[in-house]
Design a binder for these strands. Sequence first.
DNA 1: CATTAGCATCACTATATAGCAATATAGTGT
DNA 2: ACACTATATTGCTATATAGTGATGCTAATG
Lengths: 109, 109
Amino acid sequence: MGRYELTGEVLELVAQRFRALAEPARLQIIDALRNREMTVTELGSKTGLGQANLSKHLQILHNLGFVARRKTGLFVHYSLADRRVFQLCEIVCDRIDGEATSRRRLLAP
Amino acid sequence: MGRYELTGEVLELVAQRFRALAEPARLQIIDALRNREMTVTELGSKTGLGQANLSKHLQILHNLGFVARRKTGLFVHYSLADRRVFQLCEIVCDRIDGEATSRRRLLAP
DNA sequence: CATTAGCATCACTATATAGCAATATAGTGT
DNA sequence: ACACTATATTGCTATATAGTGATGCTAATG
C-alpha cells in the first residue's frame, strides 16, 4: 500500500505474512529469539510447544523469511532474519494499549 | 514486545490483530477505504465481495477498531479508524519487495 | 400499514490449520 | 553396523472461519 499496488497476487502475499504472525505460538517463538539464536530443543523448553508442532511453526516462519537456520551437527539453530517484525508488533501493541486506555477513560472518566 | 510484556493474554490480543489483516478480502476493504468513507453497497461493488460476507468482514474490522461506522438513514458508512494499518502494510510490502529483489539477484547475479 | 432498500445475522458447507502421536531422516558416538 | 539424539515429516482429529443463501431488522417511502 502507499507506493505499492494491491493487485490480487500482492494481497495474497501480504495476507500470508500477517497470517504467519496471527498465531500466539509463532509470536512466542519470535519473542524467544529476540536476544539470541536458539536450537529447536531450547525453543521447546522455553515455549512449552511440542516438538512436531514447534518444527512446523519454524518451517512456516522460515519459508516466509522471518527466521534463519544454521545447522551444526545434530542441532539446528534458529535466529531472527528480520528485526522489523518488532516494529510490526510495536505498532499493534500501541494500538491495543490505546484501546485499553480509552476503555478505561470510558469506565472512569 | 520491546517495552511490552508478552504474557499469554497479550499474545492472543496481538495475534488477533494480525489475524484480522491476514485475509485478502479485509486488506482489500482497508485499501478501498484509504481515501474516503464508503457505504457497504459501495464497498461491495468496489471489492466484488458478497453482501453477507462483506458485512461479516466489516464486523471483524470494526470490533478490533480498524474501521469506524456512521449510520445515516438506511446507509452505514465505514471509514478507517486508524491509519497506522498502512504502516503495517508498508513494512510487510517492503519485506516482500526485498525478498523479490534478492531472489532476482540469486538468479541473475 | 404495506412495501422496499440497506445492512446484519443465521445456518450451513467447504477448507485450512493447530496440535498430537508415530515414524522418518540425519548426524554422533560406540 | 548399532544405538542414540535432534529435527523433520506424515497421518490424523478437532476447531476455526470464509463464503453463500435465507431470513431478520430497521428506516424511509407511498
